[in-house]
Structure formats: structure tokens, C-alpha cells
Design a binder for these strands. Structure first.
Lengths: 114, 114
DNA sequence: TTATTATATAACTATTTGCTTATATGTACA
DNA sequence: TGTACATATAAGCAAATAGTTATATAATAA
């Protein structure tokens, strides 16, 4: 685990991003799994534009990245980001959320894809 | 260091509070020092009501507590709070801010008090 | 007592935020 | 082709946020 050189301004920006339950849960899920937008729509029972907008905020700050796979776009944690070490210390303290993806698997709506 | 049982909703609330540069710096300072309102007013070059309102938000969630000493009210980190372990992991990653208090000492405006 | 200092709170305002609906873009498939 | 599905983006709106000024409360000092 790399020691991050954290700067106050940027730290506040990152914490504000994580200070939303939807985005915080997204980051916790993405830390263990790649997920596509439609999975988040189902998990959070939220409109697709709303999910996309949350993901865009996370991407704009470099916390996640996207990768198209066929018709889907998969998001993953950007572990190359300078602040990954910083958020890792936060995320690892959060309760596991993978059961949300397990529920999708049981319903058969998990996108395992290509 | 106690392992905190963190709950997602509360974690998001705490992170949102820390996601403001003023409050984040306050918490970093308070982790090593007790400070009164007028010191923060000077450090942040911000109005007194604004400082009081930030401190109230931190206090309402239990992250800090206040103690009157004469005409001053000193704030300190509430290390008994259930989420202290959680925020400790965040705060310790931040760059030291104590130089801000040193500057007050040099100007003679640090309140060492009673 | 009165004046001064420190702090809290109330009311107001401008900005930001998170959602909505509508629409555009891109891929897959018949 | 054209239709369906997945996603992004734009525009609009209500709620939340962070600041302001004005005022109230409390302790100290003259």
C-alpha cells in the first residue's frame, strides 16, 4: 500500500464525493468488482441518468474509469489515481456490499459479459 | 486503535461533513489541539458566525465537543464518538496543519487560556 | 451598573447538488 | 437497413449548503 501525499484541497474534494451514500456504495462495490451502469440502476433502484451522473463525477476526479465492452460500459476503480491509497483506507473500513451483486446474480440480472 | 463498526448511511454523513476544506482542516487541527472559535476565525479569515456554524455541524454529529473556559468556548475532538476510529484513519493521512496555530502564537493571538 | 469581548442563533441569499424528463449517441441484432 | 438496448448529456427544478448581516446571550472588566 503506497503512502499517498495528500493535499487538503483535493482531499476535501474527494471526501465530498464520497459523502453521498450512492457514490460511497458504488466505490465500495467497484473496489472488488467491475460493474456496468445498468447494474447500478437496479441495485440503487435509481434512474439511469442519475447513475450516469454519479459515475461521471467519480470519473471526472479520476477515482474510476470506464471501459466499453460491447453494448455495456464497465466501470472500475482507478488504482493508478494519486488518491487511491487515501480512499482505500476509507473504503476498507466500510461494510461489505457485495451481497447487492449476489442478489443480481440470483435474479439472473448480473452482467458477466463478454 | 478500536475497530469501528461502520454503517454506510452514517459513514456518508460523516464524509460529507469532512468534505469541506474548512471543516476538514478544523478536524485536523482539533485532533492535536483544543481551539476556540476566535482562533478559527483568524486562521480561516472567515466571519465568526460562519465558523460557529461549521463547528455546530461537527458537534451535531458528535465529532467534536465544546467546553466553556471563561469567556471562551474551546472545541476538541470527541474521541468517544463511535466514528472516531473511522475519521482517525482519514485525518492521519492529511498533512499537518499545526503551523497555522504556530502563526497565531508568533502573532500573540493564540488563546492558551486558563 | 455599563461597556467590551466571545459566541450562538436567526433570517436571508446565492450557489451547489441530486434528481427528473427529454433527447442524442453508440452497439447489437433481425 | 431499422429496431431495441445501453449509456451519456442537456435542461429544468426543488432541496441543501455555505456564506452574509443582524441580533441575542453570556462572561469579563471598568
Amino acid at each position: 500500500m503506497l503512502k499517498t501525499v495528500v493535499e487538503m484541497d483535493k482531499a476535501a474534494v474527494v471526501l465530498k464525493l464520497l459523502g453521498d451514500k450512492t457514490r460511497l456504495t458504488m466505490m465500495k462495490l467497484l473496489d472488488n468488482n467491475d460493474c456496468c451502469v445498468c447494474e447500478f440502476v437496479e441495485i440503487f433502484d435509481m434512474s439511469q441518468p442519475s447513475v450516469s451522473q454519479h459515475l461521471r463525477k467519480l470519473r471526472d476526479v479520476g477515482l474510476v474509469r470506464e471501459q466499453r465492452k460491447g453494448q455495456w460500459i464497465f466501470y472500475s476503480v482507478n488504482k493508478d489515481n494519486d488518491y487511491y491509497g487515501f480512499i482505500e483506507q476509507i473504503i476498507k473500513q466500510l461494510p461489505d456490499q457485495d451481497y447487492k451483486l449476489k442478489e443480481l446474480e440470483e435474479k439472473g440480472t448480473r452482467i458477466t459479459c463478454c
